[in-house]
Measured scan of single mutants.
Amino acid sequence: PDLGLTQLFADPNLIENLKKNPKTSEMMKDPQLVAKLIGYKQNPQAIGQDLFTDPRLMTIMATLMGVDL
């Protein structure tokens, strides 16, 4: 199971919303991170391994779920 990750990354406004959010806007200036996020739309399971190697993803996930870290 993808634990709902498919829906989190399926939002067509995902990148724009993250660019507008004060907690994630600075991160979204990294083209490699943006490319990763776009890739998760097609393969949400890929985030599982990346969560352990890129701490920014935890902040992004929390933001998408509405959790304040």
Rank of each mutant, 00 (worst) to 15 (best):
P1S: 10
P1V: 13
P1Q: 14
D2L: 14
D2W: 14
D2M: 15
G4A: 14
L5Q: 07
T6W: 12
T6N: 12
T6V: 13
T6P: 08
Q7E: 14
Q7Y: 06
L8N: 03
L8Q: 05
A10Q: 14
D11Y: 03
D11N: 08
D11E: 08
P12R: 04
L14W: 11
E16M: 11
E16F: 07
N17A: 07
N17L: 10
N17Y: 13
N17P: 01
L18Y: 00
L18M: 03
L18D: 00
L18R: 00
K20G: 11
P22N: 08
P22A: 07
K23I: 09
S25Y: 08
S25R: 09
E26N: 10
M27S: 03
M28R: 00
M28W: 01
M28H: 00
M28G: 01
M28V: 04
M28I: 05
K29Q: 11
D30Y: 01
D30E: 03
D30P: 00
D30R: 01
Q32C: 04
L33A: 01
V34M: 04
A35S: 11
A35L: 13
I38A: 10
I38T: 09
I38L: 14
G39R: 10
Y40P: 00
K41H: 11
K41W: 07
K41Q: 13
K41A: 14
Q42H: 15
Q45A: 12
Q45L: 12
Q45C: 09
A46P: 06
A46W: 10
A46C: 08
A46H: 10
G48F: 15
Q49Y: 07
Q49D: 11
Q49F: 12
Q49M: 12
L51Q: 13
F52S: 14
F52V: 15
D54F: 02
P55T: 09
R56F: 08
R56Y: 05
M58I: 15
M58A: 12
M58V: 14
T59E: 10
T59K: 09
T59I: 15
T59D: 04
T59F: 11
T59M: 08
I60K: 00
M61D: 00
A62P: 01
T63A: 13
T63R: 02
T63C: 05
L64E: 02
M65E: 04
G66S: 10
G66N: 12
V67L: 15
D68S: 04
D68P: 02
L69A: 13
L69E: 15
